[in-house]
Write a protein that binds this DNA or RNA. Structure first.
Length: 843
DNA sequence: AGCACGCCGACT
DNA sequence: GTCGGCGTGCTC
């Protein structure tokens, strides 16, 4: 159109070009956006959502996201120019930017922090300082007086174009190098420059094919044969190539060629004869960018018939979606919720669009991915923390390009660039791990996903066997729809739960260390029947602390107000809060006695003792310490699945998503620490935990048993777990929440004041609490109080809780008041260095 | 978050 | 006398 109109006119004069400015989101915790000027020649390239490179400060060069484009020149400062544009189309979509703004607002953090958490590291880029020889300096001729270390650096620079500081450090074997660099700059021997590097590198395979010359004309191949006959090795390569790529049948096959590796896989073909052929111009080598996620997986449309109950649930959900945006699927463990999800995803995809399937980290296992892969093939994207940066970036780009229609992922997948969502599924919606605790953004992926669905006009299905009180309340009030599945799939029955009174067993001398005779007997019985056992202990390490028998000395962390846990496998005392560790002392540093005893017990001790008591059992432990390595988690699972191990001992990790046919017994070693946690959610969490672990017992036809060791079997929670009576848990909890003003009747904000000086932390917290009380009213502000663990990483902590009544509070205004109070606090000279962490909806 | 500027201790 | 510690403030 414009071309036609312009046809008769001279080109527009340069002075008429508009001067545009871009507000960018820097990946830093800065409270506002920064405005840069767009160079004229980039006017068309700069768009909202693309990455641009800018200089920030005197030295740093950063990539950031364009959030807005306008013509308003900043009045009080000179805007710097955008240096470069990295993308030809937005990598952050408009709905995403909206969502990011919501996250920053709601969770009281900066947009930069959100962007930082959202973008896979491979899509961020930063500058790195490098040094190179000064253009006017010639080491051969100019004679400078250089220190030995400086000589070394100059010598290295003569052989390399440039060096990073890290490389200089290695060159000087880690000795301080800054002063040499400084001195070399002064002597004008080197200069520093910044280099921006794109981190994402596509995966490339080396391929070979026949040069065009030999395929274009008839008879060329035969001639080639004759020519190569004296070199049998090269002839073999050619024959092998033609066998794998039948060019004589279809010339076009040659274009795609074959992976160089595939051609050498034949043992008597060597890379050198291939290389000779390349040199001769018979073959040519080329690179091809390939996906890290193989594309050739066709969905296998397995005939997957839903059971009657599943069908019914599905129909109910679809029915409710007609009037509600959100539905909660409350299905007992083993009721087959996953099949219902899969069916609904298929249904949603028929109408086009994308589906997000959220799972907590520990429930996103290879088991579920394989299952989904079978149904959705290469349309499925997986987003997991164990993935490399490049893999994450590829999922991101794949969603933008429309390659992935279904994404199964963890918490951070709510940041992915969906632009056309048609369904969101949040499985295990009660899971606390959907909430990010540190660092900011302290967001809850469940709430965020709900907002995202809302922004994109999409339905959301939440699922759980043990819904959070808040979610169930939403159903009760009619805001959400509720669908229940009360039957286990197939003939599977809910397990029988039995309580073991540890106090009684102790009196009867029936305890063998931390195992009751009953539990040991039950384990042995399963082993004899060749069945498997899962044991749950909610504490890793060998013992939570050790103590001297003579003087009662207990080793504490130097930096945190906690005792050090004993880890036997590396004979270490370790702090679970800051990671500090030291060797286990041989004798008591306080009194010299050699009677250090471990107190309490963790998974490591359970594993250790069980191996002693049941020498025939193959025991494996699964906790943070045994699953740190990349594939160790998978290894443990597959060992258990194949029956190589009989008993699996673990923390939270064993409670989720694992379906093992052969597990007929689940043991909970110490139920009391879970129930008696000082927190308003303790009972809810205990119930969820017990029901989830119990759900691991007895799938398919074998009835399972659950043995719970406790000192307080009268706890009403056990009856509720035994009877699978969620309703009564809910009724009890919701009443307490109402009475004491907890969520869902209030919204909570937790402020943590931190300072390395204890009185400063305390005084700051008092001042802050006072200001908050003035702003929000007395009953809304609780504290300050010293948390149970009052010092972490050498910072003293104080906590203030704010409870905002849900019905009557203007949330936005209240949060503004909170932000003001925090801001004002840090204006006071005494509290300049006080840190305040704001956590909205803490868990 | 970096990085620069600025004001007080232990060292060539 | 200086090098260097980290406390404070700024970055379009």
């Amino acid at each position: 159109m414009s071309e036609l109109l312009n046809f008769n006119y001279p080109p527009e004069p340069a002075t008429d070009r508009v001067t545009l400015f871009a507000d960018v989101i820097l990946p830093l915790p800065l409270p506002k956006l920064y405005t840069y000027r767009i160079p004229f020649e980039m006017n068309d390239e700069v768009m909202v959502g693309v990455r641009v490179i800018v200089q920030f400060g005197g030295k740093r060069v950063l990539s950031c996201i364009v959030a807005d484009i306008h013509e308003n020149a900043p009045a009080d400062y000179q805007a710097k120019y955008i240096l470069d544009v990295l993308d030809d189309k937005p990598i952050v979509t408009a709905p995403q930017l909206k969502l990011f703004k919501w996250i920053a607002d709601y969770y009281m953090c900066t947009l930069g922090e959100v962007i930082n958490a959202a973008l896979p590291a491979a899509l961020k880029l930063s500058s790195e300082s490098r040094i190179q020889l000064h253009p006017h300096y010639n080491p051969e001729e100019d004679e400078l007086i250089l220190a030995a270390q400086e000589e070394k650096i100059i010598f290295a620079l003569q052989n390399n174009q440039a060096l990073t500081f890290t490389e200089v450090s290695t060159l000087l074997q880690g000795k301080p190098y800054h002063k040499y660099i400084k001195s070399l700059i002064q002597k004008e021997a080197i200069i520093i420059f910044e280099q921006v590097s794109e981190k994402f590198s596509p995966k490339v395979v080396k391929k070979v094919r026949l040069t065009e010359h030999f395929v274009q004309e008839e008879g060329m191949l035969e001639e080639l044969f004759n020519q190569l006959t004296p070199q049998p090795k090269q002839l073999d390569v050619l024959l092998n190539y033609l066998q794998l790529v039948p060019v004589h049948q279809d010339i076009h096959l040659n274009y795609k060629g074959i992976e160089k590796g595939a051609l050498v896989n034949n043992p008597h073909l060597s890379a050198s004869s291939i290389n000779t052929l390349i040199k001769k111009g018979v073959l040519e080598q080329f690179d091809q960018v390939v996906s890290r996620f193989p594309m050739d997986k066709e969905p296998q449309q397995l005939p997957m018939a839903l059971s009657e109950h599943q069908l019914q649930a599905k129909d109910e959900i679809l029915g409710l979606f007609k009037e509600k945006d959100t539905v909660l699927l409350h299905g007992v463990t083993g009721s087959g919720k996953t099949e219902v999800y899969i069916d609904l995803i298929k249904h949603a995809l028929e109408g086009g669009g994308q589906v997000l399937y959220l799972l907590p980290e520990i429930a996103l296992t290879a088991q579920i991915v394989t299952r989904l892969m079978k149904v959705f093939g290469d349309k499925l994207g997986v987003y997991h923390s164990k993935f490399s940066d490049n893999e994450r970036a590829e999922v991101w780009q794949g969603i933008l390009a429309g390659r992935f229609q279904v994404v199964v992922g963890v918490r951070s997948s709510v940041f992915l660039p969906f632009h056309d969502l048609s369904l969101v599924i949040i499985d295990e919606e009660h899971e606390a791990s959907y909430k990010q605790y540190d660092p900011a953004p302290r967001y809850n992926a469940r709430e965020t996903a709900l907002v995202m669905a809302n922004l994109q006009g999409t339905k959301t299905l939440l699922g759980s066997a043990t819904p959070s009180i808040e979610s169930y309340y939403n159903c009760k009030t009619g805001r959400w729809g509720l669908v229940s599945m009360t039957k286990r799939f197939g003939q599977a029955q809910l397990p029988e739960i039995e309580l073991i009174n540890v106090r009684d067993e102790q009196h009867r001398k029936n305890m063998h260390s931390h195992f009751s005779g009953k539990l040991l007997g039950a384990i042995e019985a399963r082993l004899q029947r060749n069945e498997q056992v899962i044991l749950f202990q909610n504490r890793r390490g060998y013992a939570p602390f050790i103590s001297c028998d003579e003087c009662s000395w207990i080793p504490k962390c130097k930096f945190c107000a906690v005792s050090l846990s004993y880890h036997k496998y590396n004979n270490e005392l370790r702090c679970h809060y800051c990671g500090y560790h030291e060797r286990m002392p041989h004798d008591c540093p306080a009194c010299g006695a050699t009677s250090l005893k471990s107190m309490g017990f963790g998974t490591e001790k359970v594993e250790d003792e069980l191996k002693l008591m049941l020498p025939n059992a193959e025991v494996q432990r699964m906790d943070l310490d045994t699953t740190k390595k990349k594939n160790s988690y998978q290894q443990i699972i597959s060992d258990f699945e194949s029956g190589r191990t009989n008993v699996l001992v673990g923390t939270q990790m064993v409670t989720k998503g694992l379906d093992f046919e052969n597990v007929s017994l689940v043991g909970i070693l110490n139920a009391d620490t879970i129930i008696n946690f000082p927190d308003y959610r303790a009972h809810e969490r205990a119930y969820q935990l017990f029901v989830q672990v119990s759900g691991r017992a007895g799938r398919k036809s074998k009835p399972g048993a659950v043995l719970i060791q406790t000192r307080d079997p009268k706890q009403p929670i056990f009856t509720k777990v035994s009877n699978n009576d969620y309703q009564s848990l809910y009724d009890h909890e919701i009443e307490e929440r109402l009475r004491f003003g907890y969520p869902p009747f209030t919204r909570m904000i937790r402020l943590t004041v931190k300072h390395n000086d204890e009185p400063t932390a305390e005084n700051a917290a008092i001042v802050l609490a006072k200001d908050l009380t003035d702003r929000l009213g007395k009953p809304q502000v609780l504290g300050p109080e010293v948390p149970y663990i009052f010092k972490i990483r050498n910072l003293f902590l104080q906590e203030i809780h704010i409870k905002l009544p849900r019905e009557t509070t203007n949330l936005k205004a209240a949060k503004h008041q909170v932000a003001q109070a925090v801001f004002n606090l840090r204006l006071l000279p005494d509290f300049k260095s006080v840190r305040v962490v704001v956590d909205v909806d803490p868990m």
